[in-house]
Computed example of a mutant assay.
Amino acid sequence: MTDHDAPSGANEPGCSLAPTGLWVRAQVRQSRRHRDGLLLALEPLDPHRPGRLSAVLSGSFLRQIEAASGVLLDPDHLVGEHTLLLTLVVDPLLGLTGQVLGLERGAFLQAWREQDATAQAALQAHGLWERQRKLPAPHKLRRVVLIEPDDGTPHPLGATLSRWYEQGLLELIRLPVAYEEPGSVVALHEAFGAVFDQWDWGTLDAVVVEPGLGFAHRVLSDEGLMRRIAVLPVPVLFRRAGAPTLLDGVAFRACGTAEALLADLTGILRGELRTGGYARLTAIARALGPDPAAPVPASVSDAPPDPSPARQGPLFD
């Protein structure tokens, strides 16, 4: 570019030139790790036309995509047909390459939907797709496993279940999972392995899965993990992620919000008010407040005096 061709003011100190790039539709034949980003091998969609271009998706842009979309981009997921915004750069090692400035999500999201449909058909063929939903609804909520993000951020489900534990309503087993880290599928397999152990060794009434905010939702479409969850003899209650996953259909119940899931759990606790011990009944009634559906206010006048100080942990054997 000559000075004559340069935009007005382009040579002024501190003037930033942001490349506009060119939208290109191409076939990604190979995708592999490169430094902290990805290196894509692009080929024309027409197999009769020669040519190949390497394109770099930088680590910073990769992290921006993952943070904005909640999608953990695995190199294998990017193989296929894509529309990319490219600008040409000269890399000291790779020579003339493309720099990825933008990525249209539609292509790989469609591919993921197709993968999920194939996995769903396989689960249905083996009688696993509806197996969880055929379980009887829990009639008590005394021991609960919470699978939650290991991100150091408070989440509504964890906060409420923790408060219920402190008030003596239930026993809570918390299993944090680093959803955003590589190996999250393995970590979830281990978490559900611990769930099976808890059910086998003792008692377990429900499993609650909290995906957190902006987590990599593809881990909850892993077919092997879904097969493991489907055969669990304990209901799995799941707060849906931002995008559809296989767990939406496999889980005993999938709720759109944390509030809806907590309403389901509250209903189970209210159902116990006629069968629990007095100390636990008092704790449940105090924590939940009056039942809005009851014709008359609930009364605990027949209960013995509330022991003091308040007990921590489950108020049952």
Rank of each mutant, 00 (worst) to 15 (best):
L262E: 12
L262K: 09
L262Y: 07
A263K: 14
A263W: 05
L265Q: 09
L265V: 07
L265N: 11
T266M: 13
T266D: 15
T266R: 15
G267W: 02
G267D: 13
G267C: 05
G267R: 07
I268L: 13
I268D: 08
L269T: 06
L269G: 07
L269Y: 06
L269Q: 13
L269I: 11
R270W: 12
G271H: 10
G271T: 06
G271D: 09
G271I: 06
E272L: 00
L273R: 12
G276P: 01
G276W: 01
G276V: 15
G276I: 14
G277K: 11
G277D: 06
Y278P: 11
A279S: 05
A279M: 05
A279H: 03
R280A: 00
R280Y: 04
R280F: 03
R280S: 00
L281M: 07
T282R: 07
A283R: 09
A283S: 12
A283G: 03
A283Q: 03
A285M: 04
R286M: 06
A287N: 02
A287D: 02
L288H: 01
L288C: 00
G289P: 02
P290V: 03
P290W: 05
A294T: 05
A294E: 10
A294V: 09
P295Y: 13
P297C: 01
P297R: 14
P297E: 15
